[in-house]
Amino acid sequence: MAELGPVIAFAVVVALALFQASAVILGVLDPQLMTGLVLAASFAQASLVYVFMMHARYTSKGVLLLTITALLLLIPLFLALLYSVELPIHVPRSR
């Protein structure tokens, strides 16, 4: 039964991918809502792959700690880059 977790996770990941694609192709949602949902689906997919496929049979608290640290370290970079967006003045405009 160890395979049940990965198989269910796989099914959900594929279902979410289909949802993402159809939401964009159909274009019935508000663009901001759609962007939020697509990104949320991606995070959910990544979490499922991480938990059920990469960890498969066990969870290591050390690995979990390293993963969380890695993700935390990226947050300031994202924020700093976003806060720097107001300055497209540093380079010649000609391409």
Binding site: Q20, L39, A46, V49, Y50, M53, M54
Partner: peptide, 22 residues
């Protein structure tokens, strides 16, 4: 290999929306 492949999967799961959907 399974750990590595899972990571490669995850990276793609962000590439797909970034370039194809948004």
């Amino acid at each position: 290999f399974a750990i590595y492949w899972g990571f490669v999967d995850i990276v793609w799961l962000f590439i797909f929306p970034s370039f194809y959907l948004l």
